[in-house]
Design a protein around this nucleic acid. Structure first.
Lengths: 140, 140
DNA sequence: TTTAATGTAACTGCTATAGTCACATATAGA
DNA sequence: TCTATATGTGACTATAGCAGTTACATTAAA
């Protein structure tokens, strides 16, 4: 199961957008309902992912791209899989003296890769801008 | 990350197919390179998922459907998400007095659902029969 | 009756997640 | 310059899931 870091990160970006960057980690923690250190930890991942910039001691967070260019996939990649890139884990060290054991990974690989790609494709179509608009509609 | 139970389960079904059911958990553990209890634990999930049937004390496992009808999605559903059905976890208990906190889950839900569906769609197109054929080709 | 396999339970070690506290560092503003 | 405040990060905790391991009751074939 993909961790809630992803949905929290999207939440953070939406808060930054609607408040035009004038938010603190403390304020966002109040909306997410968690600890401010959790927010700052995820902010760090978003920074390293090139999505936001912030500075110690300064209130105010900049989005480094317009919200119509920040996709859910960007966020997903920033906060999940910092090292690993695969959605599926495959058992290793199978017995190569068994035909199945020898070829199972390579035989499954294209399907698993394709499955992950299709999932990511959907995330790539959704943007923070759309999300914020959606939420604004609901608020009426 | 989706656990390796899934790929091990596919491995088990392939072994059952190519050996026409005449396999023991001990034998399969040798191919997967793990403990036989791990194999039996996953066999239990495949049984509860309606994919195989086996009996204590008896060598021999039956596939309950022809291999062209056993999809990767069937396997995935049998061994992952026994209760929960969602690929993405979303943080709960957000602050409903904040517009973002109030609507974030419902606004993200369609996208996450769609992403999961597209991934599952790919798994639904792959069958154990195809996998076994693929492995047979590689063996030549 | 003996032998062997399944189905599970119980326990371990490992890893990841999320919450919490603490604090050094950096900045803005009085 | 001094004070208040926010970030960035490290350390620690509790919790949960995964995978390996041992053990054993149950079951059935030979």
């Amino acid at each position: 199961m993909i961790s809630s870091r992803f949905s929290v990160a999207v939440h953070i970006l939406a808060l930054i957008e609607v408040n035009e960057g004038n938010v603190t980690s403390e304020f966002m923690a109040g909306s997410v309902n968690t600890n401010s250190a959790v927010i700052r930890r995820i902010m760090g991942m978003l920074s390293r992912g090139g999505l936001i910039s912030s500075r110690p001691g300064v209130v105010g967070i900049k989005l480094l791209k317009p919200t119509e260019e920040i996709t859910f996939l960007d966020v997903y990649r920033a906060v999940e899989l910092p090292e690993t890139k695969d959605l599926f884990s495959v058992h290793q060290n199978t017995n190569i003296r068994c035909p199945i054991g020898q070829h199972i990974q390579s035989a499954m690989e294209p399907v698993l890769h394709d499955a992950q790609s299709q999932m990511e494709q959907v995330l790539a179509q959704a943007t923070i801008k759309q999300l914020v608009a959606e939420i604004a509609d609901k608020g009426d």
